[in-house]
Design a protein around this nucleic acid. Structure first.
Lengths: 222, 222
DNA sequence: TTTGATTTTACGGGAAACCGTAAAGGAGCG
DNA sequence: CGCTCCTTTACGGTTTCCCGTAAAATCAAA
């Protein structure tokens, strides 16, 4: 089993429960932090001391408080950590259940396992720990495997997301071409933008753009 | 201190941590449930046995899973519980930080305390427990007191919310008068509806209706 | 290079949203 | 009742959105 693990989790209640769980697995050295920035610092220090962490268990969303931070989400933390220690293993432990986001963790951040916080998540966390320790294969709970067959994420691409995001930020469809040209996003003609929004409304069965944005928000697309 | 307490919380990690915390306060009988329905059942049974719970600690959002439930949120649970045992004290323990929702808990559900899950929430939970046990006054952490001075909830009324909700459901502004007439919502002329949406955009500094709905979603207004 | 399919762009007409102004309706008060 | 204040409603003009058609550009394969 792992011997040196770092837990990044802002909620004190969960933080304690996870630490207890790791103890039960006889993991000798378990460190807990409540801020992403602290996690990165600890990992840096451990690297310098030549005693690197073998595993990072992290949440995705961290509450903002009075303390200003460089890193404000699990995603940002993972990216920063992998830059300085690419071989570290990562388990994400989160309530996040939006397929788009979970999928991206595996595809873009190359995490080793995803455990959904729920009514039976501590046993699942143990299971994930064992799997990740034993092999290099990706691990995800059986009841979440459907995520990878999810049609939405296959058919909605980055361009669509940017389009929806800018609409939600209040950019008028009519001015979107200007915005996109400034940002170097292509294609950027009024016509194409208009058509793309039309397709999205079609796809999500939205009556109008307002409805589309509400749906996208609900799906966690933005 | 309380001697018989029920904890309703779906996440096993938090559930365990809360139970441990209550133990530390020397509360003899602590029961935990992971479903709202189970909470109501336990409270009913305890009432019938003439050994009622003195306090309910509950989360607000409960994950849906394979099991079909009557009650699906802390709000629903509290309403149901107060019907059969109006004198029970209630502490809400949640990550919910939308002023609108928290405020409504105190004003409509008459809860005794609200504790925000966060980096230092277990000590705060202890504090709330003591306060609620000692007096009948409402308790909320100092850093959340601003909620009751919050301007948004004062100036945005039920009518506005319904308007925003229907927009988010895809009802066109132009057809909203028909929808409102059907539902008996007044005023319902095109002109007034148009003006009201205009005011909301003004108030929230939204560029257009799409933007407005995105903001409302972010604020948890809908 | 030609061919054909697909994507991007242009444009025009009708629908909906946006914005200001003004009339109509209602509540409160002398 | 008459007056004021405020809310609701009506309406016209402008802008933006919506939708179809068609031309231009891009790309892959023959």
């Amino acid at each position: 089993m792992f011997s040196k693990v770092l837990v990044a989790e802002d909620l004190d209640s969960i933080n304690i429960a996870v630490a207890t769980t790791l103890d039960e697995l006889n993991i000798v050295e378990v460190d807990s932090v409540k801020y992403c920035d602290d996690a990165l610092l600890k990992i840096k220090k451990a690297l310098n001391d030549n005693e690197p962490y073998q595993l990072l268990i992290t949440d995705l969303s961290f509450i903002e408080d009075f303390r200003p931070n460089q890193l404000n989400s699990g995603e940002e933390l993972i990216t920063a950590v992998k830059k300085i220690q690419p071989n570290i293993k990562v388990i994400v432990f989160s309530v996040e259940e939006k397929p788009v986001r979970i999928k991206s963790l595996f595809e873009n951040q190359n995490i080793n396992a995803f455990v959904l916080k729920g009514r039976n998540s501590l046993p699942e966390l143990k299971k994930a720990l064992k799997k990740v320790f034993e092999s290099d294969e990706k691990y995800i709970a059986a009841n979440l495997a459907y995520i990878f067959q999810d049609k939405i994420t296959h058919q909605i691409d980055d361009y669509d997301i940017q389009l929806i995001q800018h609409l939600a930020l209040g950019v008028a469809q009519d001015k979107m071409d200007i915005t996109f040209k400034k940002l170097g996003i292509e294609p950027n003609s009024k016509s194409t933008i208009e058509k793309r929004i039309g397709k999205l409304k079609d796809y999500f069965k939205a009556n109008n753009t307002v409805h589309l944005i509400a749906i996208a928000k609900d799906l966690g697309l933005i």
